[in-house]
């Protein structure tokens, strides 16, 4: 039985002590109201009201139960109001993931940028793309900031922002003489890259792009820690990729000519689970990363799908 509805009717009758007035207040007719009270009495197994032709009065049980009913109904009101606030994205918390290499300055800017847009509490976790995808899938994360590529088939995406990559070179390397470096000029140097297991698709994409532009490193060092990567560069014989935001002082950063390599980043959340707080977070991410120099993705390369693609002629 819909106990709360019947209790609401009982409350009206108890306050009016008159079925006609109670029915009018509830915008219903009297017979269904009487039936409702009878059903409630049957459900609870006690008489709540004494009624004769002219009077309605609360029984002792009715008086005590009325007090409890008021508490329950007030609880229902609070519950519904709270749900309403969640529905409009004004309450609760938003669980968001950001990649470990986002940088302290970006994280510091993200919190106030979100707070300006949403009253919801923001709970940030620092986790990589693969782990964010798992957390979004098992609903332990509401929204993430993900580095491409990843399977987008079940996600909605915010604007895709790009940051062009350059290289870190030792101070005394001849390539530092020019304002930029061609990928093909790096032949003979080893490449320092993040461990393949942390993002296999991106790792392969970087190496494919290097090959496309004439650089096939003889050796790829997998470095998880930026300090270790820097060490390999400073030791000579290797270059590391870097987005040029606050490069380490010991090395020299040079952009790559033609910006062949880009990190692409966007906010992402499971499709159909966009709330105002998610929108506010995606907008805050765009604001912060744009201020940090990232740009909206633009332009595409010519693409020549091969016959094995089966679907494009």
């Amino acid at each position: 039985m819909d106990l709360l509805r019947h209790l609401r009717y009982f409350l009206a009758v108890a306050e009016e002590l008159h079925f006609g007035r109670a029915a009018a207040r509830l915008h219903m007719s009297q017979p269904p109201l009487s039936q409702s009270i009878q059903r409630l009495e049957r459900e609870l197994g006690v008489r709540l009201l004494d009624r004769d032709a002219r009077h309605v009065a609360l029984t002792d049980a009715g008086r005590r139960i009325l007090t409890e009913a008021r508490g329950l109904l007030a609880g229902e009101d609070r519950l519904r109001a709270l749900a309403e606030r969640f529905r409009h994205g004004e309450a609760g918390s938003l669980r968001a993931g950001v990649p470990p290499d986002l940088g302290g300055r970006a994280v510091a800017a993200l919190l106030p940028a979100f707070r300006r847009r949403s009253p919801v509490e923001l709970k940030l976790r620092e986790i990589g793309t693969a782990e964010q995808l798992r957390a979004l899938a098992d609903r332990s994360l509401d929204v993430g900031v993900l580095r491409f590529p990843f399977d987008v088939s079940w996600l909605s995406l915010g604007p895709v922002l790009t940051s062009p990559l350059g290289v870190l070179l030792p101070r005394d390397h001849p390539l530092t003489a020019a304002p930029d470096v061609r990928l093909a000029d790096l032949n003979g140097l080893a490449l320092v890259l993040f461990p393949r297991a942390t993002a296999p698709a991106l790792h392969d994409e970087v190496l494919t792009t290097c090959a496309r532009h004439g650089y096939t490193p003889a050796e790829v060092h997998q470095a998880g820690n930026p300090e270790f990567a820097l060490g390999l560069v400073l030791a000579g014989g290797a270059v590391a990729l870097h987005d040029g935001v606050a490069p380490p002082a010991d090395a020299v950063w040079r952009p790559l000519r033609g910006t062949p390599l880009l990190w692409r980043t966007s906010a992402a959340w499971p499709r159909g689970r966009q709330t105002p707080a998610v929108t506010a977070f995606a907008d805050a991410v765009t604001e912060v990363l744009t201020a940090q120099g990232m740009r909206h993705a633009e332009g595409t390369l010519p693409r020549y799908p091969r016959p094995a693609a089966e679907y494009l002629s």
Binding site: F148, V152, L157, V160, R271, A297, T300, L301, R303
Partner: peptide, 19 residues
């Protein structure tokens, strides 16, 4: 425009053919 659009993840996330 196809085919280049079919390498854009934002475009792919809205294709019925992949759902």
């Amino acid at each position: 425009e196809l085919p280049a659009a079919l390498t854009d993840p934002v475009v792919l996330s809205r294709l019925r053919a992949l759902n």
